[in-house]
């Protein structure tokens, strides 16, 4: 019984995943923000992956869009960095860091 049900469940699961990624195309793109003297470049790819680049680092992450125009960056370590999308800007707050405003490039 279980063996019959599982493929169906997996299919449902896959469908749900595709449903989640419908708005990504609109948000995807390259954004940049200035913090102190550091320029941060945020690249959001269509496939839900993205990079956070500074002069020294390039951090990979996954991103997703939540309801209410929220952008979540899912870190590799299991954290979520929430951001707010409005038009071409993404506003983001990192703990201990000032508010970052990314402009679409």
């Amino acid at each position: 019984m279980m063996r019959r049900i599982l493929p169906i469940l997996l299919l449902l699961f896959a469908l749900a995943l595709t449903a989640c990624s419908q708005d990504k195309g609109a948000v995807a793109g390259t954004y940049a923000a200035q913090s102190n003297e550091t320029e941060i470049v945020l690249t959001l790819k269509d496939n839900g992956k993205g990079t956070w680049s500074t002069d020294l680092d390039e951090i990979e992450f996954k991103w997703s869009i939540r309801k209410g125009g929220e952008l979540w960056l899912h870190t590799k370590e299991g954290g979520v960095i929430p951001g707010v999308i409005s038009d071409d800007t993404i506003t983001m707050i990192l703990p201990g860091v000032d508010q970052l405003v990314f402009q679409r490039q």
Partner: peptide
Amino acid sequence: AISLPEDMFSFVYSMKLSS
């Protein structure tokens, strides 16, 4: 102390401690 949460280590580190 500096807040460097383990779950967003890379990001915060890059912002605060990379230098």
